[in-house]
Nucleic acid binder design. Structure first.
Lengths: 331, 331
DNA sequence: CTGAAAGCGCTAACAA
DNA sequence: TTGTTAGCGCTTTCAG
């Protein structure tokens, strides 16, 4: 840590400028000097200070990604897709989860001050802050979130998938569908609910929403308890994400309710557990969301492009045993 | 981005030193000047450059975590636990996944140059590099990896858990056990295999290892295909992690093999999918591993402690339907 | 091709 | 309490 460019310069018998050049541009110095410098650097175990370099270059060579949580598989996959792509673009990645953090806005602002650009996932910070960052000239890409002026966005398709899901549930015999989740908590969820309700309504089915606190398995368990003791069983539960659905399923099973005989269940995302549990769901390209965001952010940082771009990635309905009753339809 | 401490100083009619002080230590300046400075800063939408600050303070106020991959739930949980704890300690978190990266060592070295300390998870980089970093005075904490001189380490208990698992499998009627995974790929896996083999051997059962390439579901599927077509079915498969086990189970099921009737399966980690699939496994405190690492790294960075410390966190055997045959024992 | 010198934006003595 | 002045370790003109 102690050895600086000056030490290397002294040992190699050259100026610090030459060291700087020799260690980066291969061909701005003689092969001979370059060899001397490289040698000296190796001898001293010299590692250039990124701090010094970054200040001189006035860039961080790092960008950040802000997400609500890493506990479910969904955000983890998005972050991973992002990290892999960012690494290829030679950018370091700073992560920040706002989950339950008191001063999320302040923390994000501080994060922004140490990066060249930011990816903001879902509803982690206010639109106001996003706009302030954008206004300050900071490149921002929004993921799984309603676009904001001046920032790029990357989202997964919701509307059409919700229609297909509605069609499938109705085909499987569902007349009453309960949507589980909180549309107010995320633009994704709101879109899913509204599209599902519209499509199911057009098919003559009835959709009502059961608002949850949170999107984890525990929230699903609470919904199960509620359904068993009070509100009764609908023909189908359409959940805002897989964890909710899996928790719900677990709760119902424990209460003696059989799926898909007594009721149907669907999720959203297609996480690993959904595959092993046999849960019908909508597959999102989670990694691709992150990777695309990295690409867009890079374009923004390098100034390749002027106008904002808003990507919408395709999704798939994956039908499994949780919505395929023996007879094909329900009585 | 353009406004610097000098602009603020000019507008407030004070020196840059005063601005610097006013914006950090509340009580090193008059309330009056402080107000003027704060006002000027707000007017100009001034955000202190972290780069300038960091160079002057000669610290990054950031640390990094290196892990193989974020695709499975295991590392994601560790990273999350780490991030949450690090945030509380007011450190930014840089992440780096080495998965399939060509120059992992170089990338890690570069990461090290922009952080105050590093957490290295599993077998991501060579011991040689770890030792070089430690030798350079960089605080390093190893997670899920054999300790190295000069670095702290945090691991989950393997030996005792493996014994309990062996006992359970034998009690369930297993005489031939196949361990699935690659002991050479990770110290954790090696420990699990050896302890399991020893314990099962003592109980009169026979354990042999089936070495896999990778630890994902696909590797498990390959093992299933292999067992069905060639090597035959043991009484039980003990897998190095849950994903391997779930992939294996899926493959066997597709081939018409019934678990736990025809053979038993166990995993390791207790990820979400294991719970929903009914997989017997060993629960690791994944988040706690990350959180503890953050704490240890902080101690190292702040120099609270001289000697290295090596934590071993407790694990639990979780018995589920994949190893509980109807009769209680197998014929 | 190489060196001298001027910053990058901030903090931290040291004076006043 | 406040200002002046050195750096922090590097890159980058601008001369030579």
């Amino acid at each position: 840590m102690a050895t600086t460019i000056r030490d290397v310069a002294r040992r190699a018998g050259v100026s610090i400028a030459t060291v700087s050049r020799a260690l980066r541009d291969a061909d701005s110095v003689t092969v001979e000097t370059r060899a001397r410098v490289t040698r000296a650097a190796a001898d001293l175990d010299y590692v250039p200070s990124q701090l010094g370099r970054q200040l001189a270059e006035r860039r961080h060579a790092a960008n950040g990604i802000v997400f609500p949580d890493l506990s479910g598989p969904y955000y983890a996959e998005v972050v991973l897709g992002y990290e892999v792509a960012a690494a290829e673009l030679d950018h370091a990645v700073l992560i920040l989860s706002t989950h339950g953090r008191a001063d999320a806005e302040g923390t994000v602002a501080r994060l922004a001050a140490r990066t060249d650009g930011l990816v903001v996932v879902a509803r982690t910070v206010s639109d106001a802050l996003v706009q302030r960052l954008v206004g300050r000239g900071m490149p921002v890409v929004l993921v799984a979130r309603t676009p904001v002026d001046g920032a790029d966005s990357v989202n997964a398709e919701n509307t059409e998938a919700a229609s297909r899901l509605a069609q499938h549930l109705v085909d499987a015999g569902a007349q009453t569908i309960r949507f589980v989740g909180d549309p107010a908590a995320s633009s994704d969820v709101a879109e899913r609910y509204e599209s599902l309700a519209a499509a199911a309504g057009a098919l003559g089915a009835d959709v009502r929403v059961e608002v949850t606190t949170g999107f984890g398995e525990n929230a699903g368990l609470r919904v199960a308890a509620d359904a068993v003791t009070g509100s009764g069983l609908p023909d189908a539960f359409a959940c805002a994400n897989d964890e909710l659905a899996l928790g719900l399923w677990l709760g119902l099973r424990q209460a003696g309710v059989t799926v898909p005989d007594d009721t149907l269940i669907s999720g959203w995302d297609d996480v690993m557990a959904a595959r092993h549990a046999g849960l019908t769901t909508v597959r999102q390209p989670m990694r691709e969301l992150g990777a695309r965001a990295a690409l867009r952010l890079h374009e923004l940082i390098t100034g390749t492009r002027q106008e904002s771009v808003h990507d919408v990635l395709a999704t798939d309905l994956i039908v499994r045993s949780s919505t395929t009753p023996p007879g094909g339809t329900r009585p």
